[in-house]
Write a protein that binds this DNA or RNA. Sequence first.
DNA 1: GACGTGTAAGTGCATATACACGTAAAGGAG
DNA 2: CTCCTTTACGTGTATATGCACTTACACGTC
Lengths: 138, 138
Amino acid sequence: MSRPAYHDCLNARLRRSMRAVGRRFDAALKPVGLKSTQFTVLAVFAYHSELTVTKLADLMAMDRTTLTRNLQPLVRQGWLEIAGDKDGRVKVVRQTSAGRAKLAEATPLWQAVQDEVTKVLGAEKRADLMQVLAELEA
Amino acid sequence: MSRPAYHDCLNARLRRSMRAVGRRFDAALKPVGLKSTQFTVLAVFAYHSELTVTKLADLMAMDRTTLTRNLQPLVRQGWLEIAGDKDGRVKVVRQTSAGRAKLAEATPLWQAVQDEVTKVLGAEKRADLMQVLAELEA
DNA sequence: GACGTGTAAGTGCATATACACGTAAAGGAG
DNA sequence: CTCCTTTACGTGTATATGCACTTACACGTC
């Protein structure tokens, strides 16, 4: 037997691609002062007017405590706001009008990268990729 | 026009899957005290006896300054060592025997997760995924 | 109403990631 | 030999990520 097929590691491959793609999206969004990860959070609120921290974390398949900290820069910039609830345990996250504006401002830049990827990969391969990546989450 | 198709964001999808897969690999490697990212670094040295920092970063498609810091925990644990070179600008990274042993110890645990993924996705889908992810790097 | 259980959120710690900038050494032009 | 450019690497700062642990509140049982 030869050495194990380390080059076939799914985790390593995913991270490599994630880094490359992340750099690409980050660069595209730089003119509007958004990280790609922050864009992703703002985009969730295009579909939900308000969410508790835990529900948002579930939606994003992210550790709740990671999200708590990721929200801070967005709150500091005034794009999101966090308020208490009748239920004293719960914090509700909402997008501000500045947040909606920032998302709208960033959307064409984001769309351009999306289109670029579709062009490079082809629509079919891209759709298959998205599908398999989603399966991977389970 | 309706709202943009934010749910179709490649970057967000990649990160979601990366998080899920990373958690899975991290959990599997926990018994031997390795993070999945650290395993990836150690595995590179199954193919290369020594590498400069920049070459290692290139091989991993990672920012060089990120790698510099990622190496520190591995050096601290005694799995890698970093030495100077004739060329005073260059730092050479090598795996120690402890590093080789740790990699060998972790390999079966890593292989189990790899096999699990292949079982869940099917070998073909998995191979296609790896292929497309590689294309994405360019 | 006191108490135990479950639920929502935050903190401490460690690591991963990358950009902007700084430092130091090699190597060539004059 | 001096100066300039290139190359290799590190630091400062900010963000992303997750686990172990803690805190605060709600709710049902007695």
